[in-house]
Each structure stands twice: as C-alpha cells, then as structure tokens.
Amino acid sequence: MQADIPSLSCILILDSDGQRICCKYYTQDLGTTHAEQLAFEKKMFDKSSRTNARSEAEIVLFDNLVAVYKNSADAWFFIVSRQNENELILANVLTALCEALTLSLRQIDKRTMLDNYESLLLTVDELIDGGMILETDASAISNRVGMKAANSEPAAPAEGGTFSFAFSSAKESFARSLLR
C-alpha cells in the first residue's frame, strides 16, 4: 500500500460482547483467515472495552497499529491503521462514519444496524474504497447511501449532529484562546 496516502488497515464494528457486526479488512497484515481476523477483533475489543469512549473518541496503540474507537449504545466502532498514520485523520474518519450512520439510521445501536444492514454496508463502502478515504462528509455519504443525490450541494439540514459538532468546535477554539 502506498505509504503517502492516508489509508486504513480495517474498520471494525463490534457489539458489546465483542462479536462482529460488520468488519472490513483492507490489508493482509492483520490476518487473512477468518480465525485470525476474529482473534484480532477479540484482542482489539479486550484492549478497549473497559474504557469510556462514549463522549469522545478514544485511541490505543498496540502491535504497530493505531486504533481510534468510539462506543455508541451497544456498538463499538474501530478505525485501525498502521501506527505511523496521522491519528487525527483516523478520528475524522470515525466521526464521519458515526455521523453518516446517525443521519441514515437516526440512532445507532446493534439492533438498528442489523435491521438496516444494507445501509451500514453501503455507508462503509461510501466512506472507504480499498483502504483509502473516499469521502468524509457525512451528509454526502448519507445521501449516496440513500441514492438521493450524488453531491451534498444542498446544504445539510441543521440536525443535531452537525449542530453539536459546530458547538463543540466553537467551545474548543474558545478554550484555546483562553490558554494562549
């Protein structure tokens, strides 16, 4: 895989027991067989499940990999890449994944995702292509999943997700100006 272009090793979506909901591997190095992949998922889950990753994405470094993850209800989302990848890009991908799912499914938990499994698959497919980041704009992804429009030109409606994002970024820049 080209070293320059930001790329992912895999996306994992697991339930609260660490069981696979939807996993997509883009490189061979995490294991090529089903058993190896399950072992990796178990390891990943063991490393993260005791932490609190509800409000903010958490991060862990192990085995030459860096993983950014988030927990929503009974689902865990992991974005895994090689350890020298810019972790903030990974965090952006994770945010895009969660926001796009929220836009498509209204809420994200295991039940909803299984019931709308095709939307889940399509979201992942529209987010990442062969390990490369295809699109990180959540509303564009959601529109393409719903086959509504190819572009996000009509500005996304002011929904909770985007508003809270704007609010938190405002808060952050305020905090930063105080620190200066």
Partner: peptide
C-alpha cells in the same frame, strides 16, 4: 503543547506521541 490540554483523547495522544 496546546494539544496536550485538549479534552479530546486523540489530540492529547497525538501530541504526546
């Protein structure tokens, strides 16, 4: 150094690394 004080774990981690 500013990242170190962020409330986002990913930012703190990135800076510390």
């Amino acid at each position: 150094q500013l990242f170190l004080c962020s409330n986002k774990p990913t930012l703190r981690f990135a800076a510390a690394r």
